[in-house]
Design a protein around this nucleic acid. Structure first.
Length: 492
RNA sequence: GGUCGGAUGGCCGAGUGGCUAGGCAGAGCUCUGCAAAAGCUCCUACAGCGGUUCGAAUCCGCUUCCGACCUCCA
């Protein structure tokens, strides 16, 4: 291909040509959700972004193994309940089993992903199902001198690791600063005094008696630390070095930095070639997140049941909204923006349908079809620039409408090429689907009949009847559009 | 406090040295029995101040403002 795929690699801080380790195979690991709460708008962004990446890679002919974990062992709290396990806490709160919480939110996550038309990953490993692998990696780290056990907990020894490795190369941290402590604002975490050094991080945490989620280990009952699951599971399913690791920018430090240290420390080499990070969704310019409590869940988006929402927004509106920003830019949430996207999406999909139904009307095209199609690929190849792709597809829609109106020409061969390429981009790569496609053959037949009756009325100048039919249909949510080739309709 | 990033038209959001991003909103027109849809046209912005350059939204410097990470987070 003339323009190979380029991805921005956080590690090198520049766009790089994507070259897999063992083409045509591509290994992709994306940090999955912690299932102790409903999925929110922020979750939609990485999973849509990497869904598009997977779809595109497969279109390019790669065989992708897409691994995305489910974190169901919880992480340390930072508030008054410091040292608690988030999942255990929520379970006590609701008087149910931890695994029940995990199950409920895993299901709700899957439902949201399906609504957003994100395809499931190839493997979706659970942290709780890989305790053995995590323990093995921790023991290896101890054996290699990069970890130490204290009071039933095990910590990663950043100082020891940093002697021969660059801890901080991904996130741009300086080890000395981390060791010195990150300023006066740094809160004191439970277990901080057990660490040899403030920069050290937990690999295994000793479980307090009230701690429900616990597993036996060589150091006593406990639970895995913050970052070890991703290292252990990516190694298990993708190997010690794999192609792409994705996730939100907020995971850059300490999560991904520590993943590198754990993998490097235990296996002896760098785990990932391309680190790809999506930016945050903001609300009033501020990050939308659990800790700030300013997030909107996906089910609230879809139902409109949230004080910040003036109306419901469909899953495809949300998907289109997210795809209209490049994944490395922040994207600001707003009703006005969403409403604009909703209308734009409708016109967009209508236009694509118009293109699909188009018939060739000339022996040559009045515009350059190959260049237009090439522009789709150029956009995607440039670090998945979906907004540019969408702009080019809008241009395609404009041309299709012109052809339909007899104001532009296209030949048969060009038309077929364009139809194929545009549909591929819209449905297969961007992963949009027509939410209004409903009714089936029966409705089609009924509508054809109604429109025929209306046409008769119009021919007889019986506009009262023709308007009655149209207005009643409008009231039912079906829009009638009179065109040169007769009337057509869409479900609103 | 440290590190990094951003400031684009009413709103969202691309773009990195000259050439229209795109969408939504708004205005006009065409089409139409009237609408709707669609098309065409218009609205042409780049935080501020300096500098480099024939030419800067785009490069450099300074200023102001905003954000992210440094603590679980997509």
């Amino acid at each position: 291909m003339d323009h190979p795929l380029h991805l921005y690699n956080t590690l090198s801080r520049k766009k790089e040509t994507f070259v897999p380790i063992a083409a045509p195979h591509v290994g992709l690991y994306v940090c999955g959700p912690t299932v102790y709460g409903d999925p929110h708008l922020g979750h939609a962004r990485p999973y849509i972004t990497f869904d598009v990446l997977v779809r595109y890679l497969e279109h390019l002919g790669y065989k992708v193994r897409y691994v995305r974990n489910i974190t169901d062992v919880g992480h340390l709290e930072n508030d008054a309940d410091a040292g608690d396990d988030k999942i255990a806490k929520k379970a006590r709160l609701e008087q149910i089993e931890p695994m029940e919480v995990v199950q409920r939110y895993t299901v709700s996550f899957h439902e949201a992903m399906e609504l957003l038309n994100n395809r499931p990953p190839s493997i979706e490993p659970r942290a709780s199902g890989h305790i053995i692998e995590q323990l093995a990696m921790i023991e290896q780290l101890i054996a290699n001198g990069f970890a130490y056990a204290v009071n039933g907990s095990v910590y990663f020894d950043v100082t020891a690791y940093a002697k021969d490795h660059d801890y901080g190369k991904l996130s741009g941290r300086v080890v000395e600063d981390l060791i010195a402590g990150a300023g006066n604002e740094r809160r004191s975490l439970e277990g901080q005094d057990e660490k040899r050094n403030p920069a050290d991080f937990a690999l295994w945490k000793n479980a307090q008696p009230e701690h429900i989620m616990r597993w036996p280990s060589p150091w006593g009952d406990g639970f895995p630390g913050w970052h070890i699951e991703c290292s252990a599971m990516s190694k298990k399913y993708l190997g010690e070095t794999f192609d792409i690791h994705g996730g939100g920018m907020d995971l850059l430090f300490p999560h991904h930095e520590s993943e590198i240290a754990q993998s490097q420390g235990s296996c002896g080499h760098h785990p990932v070639n391309y680190w790809v990070h999506n930016n945050m969704i903001t609300i009033n310019g501020q990050k939308m997140g659990k800790s700030l409590g300013n997030f909107i869940t996906l089910s609230e988006m879809f139902s409109g049941n949230h004080p910040k929402l003036t109306q419901a927004f469909s899953p495809m509106t949300v998907r289109f909204f997210i795809l209209q920003a490049q994944y490395r830019s922040t994207l600001d949430f707003g009703n006005e923006a969403l409403q604009g996207v909703e209308k734009g999406l409708k016109r967009f999909l209508e236009g694509i349908k118009t293109l699909e139904k188009l018939k060739a009307n000339a022996d040559s095209s009045s515009f350059e079809v190959d260049g237009l199609i090439a522009s789709y690929y150029e956009a995607l190849n440039d670090d998945l620039n979906t907004p540019i792709l969408i702009a080019q597809l809008y241009e395609t829609v404009r041309l299709a409408n012109l052809i339909a109106a007899g104001q532009a020409d296209i030949d048969a061969a060009s038309l077929e090429k364009l139809q194929k390429a545009a549909s591929l981009m819209v449905y297969d790569i961007l992963g949009l689907r027509d939410e209004q496609a409903a009714g089936g053959n029966q409705l089609d037949g009924v509508m054809a009949l109604l429109l025929e009756l209306r046409q008769k009325a119009k021919t007889n100048k019986d506009f009262a009847t023709s308007d009655l039919i149209r207005d009643q249909l409008t009231a039912l949510g079906i829009q009638v559009k009179d065109g040169k080739e007769g009337a057509s309709w869409t479900v609103l």
